[in-house]
Design a protein around this nucleic acid. Structure first.
Length: 134
DNA sequence: GCCAACGTTGGC
DNA sequence: GCCAACGTTGGC
């Protein structure tokens, strides 16, 4: 199983909305690197859900429920979407500030490549974030 | 609201 | 194919 992190501006699509909807089509990604990451997602992969712009914290864990398919909102079928379902909210959201100050997370793309919206997370990084959320 | 970082576009 | 100009993202 692989692990990922996706970013969303809560004003556009929040974790609370995902919980309410029960499942979401993760569309609108228009960046090649992010697209390649969507393509590599497998059903059952776990996904950290991060609020960008407002919030600036990891707020929940989601799961991939459908592997990549052409993004219904794109003209070009090469852009892809996946489906996500909420698993659980973090007891304590993990703020970017805390992520940046933890040496175990220094290679996380959220820190090193801040504009990427869909990124892989290693298992130790994933576990570290869950640990910080307790 | 500002600005740095990054990606994309388009002229040459 | 290079690079300047421009647009967008996202942290502060």
């Amino acid at each position: 199983m692989n692990r990922w992190l996706v970013k969303s501006e809560p004003d556009t699509y929040s974790w609370q909305r995902l919980e309410k909807d029960g499942e979401a089509v993760w569309d609108g990604v228009r960046n090649y690197q992010a697209r390649n990451n969507l393509r590599a997602m497998k059903k059952g992969d776990l996904v950290l859900f991060y609020h960008s712009n407002t919030g600036l914290e990891v707020v929940g864990v989601a799961r991939v429920t459908q592997e990549s398919f052409p993004d219904p909102t794109a003209d070009d079928p090469r852009w892809l979407s996946v489906k996500l379902q909420p698993v659980r909210p973090l007891k304590k959201p993990v703020p970017l500030k805390q992520i940046k100050s933890d040496s175990r997370l220094k290679d996380l793309k959220l820190v090193t490549h801040s504009r990427l919206s869909v990124m892989p997370v290693t298992e130790p990084e994933f576990e570290t974030i869950l640990e910080l959320s307790k």
